Deep mutational scan, measured.
Amino acid sequence: SEHYTFDGEEQAIRFMRDMEAKNLKYELQIHNGKYIIQVD
Rank of each mutant, 00 (worst) to 15 (best):
E27F: 12
I36S: 05
Q38N: 10
E9T: 05
L28I: 10
Y4T: 03
Y35R: 01
E2R: 14
H3Y: 15
L28W: 11
Y4P: 03
N23M: 07
Y26G: 04
K34A: 05
F6R: 00
I13H: 08
L24F: 08
S1I: 13
V39H: 03
K34Y: 09
D7S: 08
R14Y: 04
G33T: 02
K25W: 09
K22P: 02
S1Y: 13
L24E: 04
E27V: 13
H3L: 14
H3K: 13
E27T: 14
K22Y: 05
L28N: 01
L24D: 02
H31I: 15
G33P: 00
R17L: 11
M19T: 03
I36G: 01
Y4A: 03
R17F: 06
M16L: 09
K25S: 10
Y4L: 05
E2G: 13
D18Q: 10
V39E: 01
K25M: 08
Y35K: 00
E9I: 14
A12E: 01
R17I: 09
E2W: 14
K25Y: 10
V39T: 05
K25I: 08
E9K: 10
E20S: 06
H31W: 10
Q38C: 15
E27K: 12
Q11D: 15
E20P: 01
D40Y: 15
G8L: 14
I30K: 04
R14N: 10
S1K: 13
I13Q: 11
H31S: 11
Q38H: 15
Y26M: 07
E27M: 10
D40F: 15
M19A: 08
Q38M: 14
Y4W: 10
T5K: 04
N32C: 12
E2H: 15
V39I: 11
Y35H: 02
I30P: 01
G8W: 12
L28M: 10
E2L: 14
I36M: 07
M19S: 02
V39R: 02
H31M: 12
K22F: 05
E10V: 06
N23D: 08
R14E: 14
G33A: 03
R17V: 08
I37A: 03
I30V: 10
D40L: 15
F15Y: 03
L28H: 02
R14D: 12
R14M: 10
Y4F: 11
I37F: 09
A12L: 07
D40S: 13
F15Q: 03
M19Q: 04
E10L: 06
A21T: 08
A12N: 01
T5W: 12
K25N: 09
Q38W: 15
D7F: 09
G8F: 14
K22D: 04
N32S: 05
D18T: 07
I13C: 11
Q29H: 13
E20A: 09
E9Y: 14
M19K: 00
Q29T: 14
G8I: 14
M19C: 15
I13A: 08
F15T: 03
Q38G: 05
S1P: 12
I36L: 07
H31Q: 12
D40M: 15
N23P: 01
H3A: 11
M19H: 03
F6S: 00
D18L: 14
G33M: 02
D7V: 06
D18C: 15
D7I: 06
I37Y: 01
D40R: 13
I30N: 03
E2C: 15
Y35N: 00
E20N: 06
Q29M: 12
D18V: 08
Q29P: 00
M19P: 00
I13F: 09
H31L: 13
E20F: 06
N32V: 03
K34V: 11
D40T: 14
E10T: 07
Y35Q: 01
Q29K: 12
D18E: 14
E20W: 05
I30L: 07
N32R: 05
S1Q: 12
I36A: 02
G8C: 15
Y35D: 00
E20L: 07
R17M: 12
A21Q: 10
E27P: 00
M16N: 00
F6T: 01
N32A: 06
V39M: 08
L24C: 08
R14F: 04
G33C: 02
R17P: 01
Q11R: 05
Q29N: 09
D7T: 06
D40W: 15
Q38V: 15
L28T: 04
F15I: 04
E20M: 08
G33F: 02
D7R: 03
L24N: 05
L28P: 00
Q29V: 14
M16H: 01
R14K: 12
D18Y: 12
E20V: 07
Y26W: 08
D18K: 08
A21C: 07
A21K: 11
I30C: 13
F15A: 07
G8Q: 14
Y4H: 09
K22V: 06
I13M: 11
I36W: 06
K22S: 07
H3M: 14
L28K: 02
M16K: 01
K34D: 02
G8K: 13
K34T: 07
V39Q: 02
T5F: 11
Y26I: 08
Q38L: 15
Q29I: 14
S1H: 14
V39L: 10
T5M: 12
F6H: 00
K25P: 09
N23E: 07
A21W: 06
T5S: 10
H31C: 15
E9Q: 08
M19R: 01
E20R: 05
A12W: 04
H3C: 15
F6A: 01
F6L: 03
E20G: 04
I13R: 11
D7C: 13
T5Q: 09
E27S: 12
E10A: 09
M16T: 03
A21S: 11
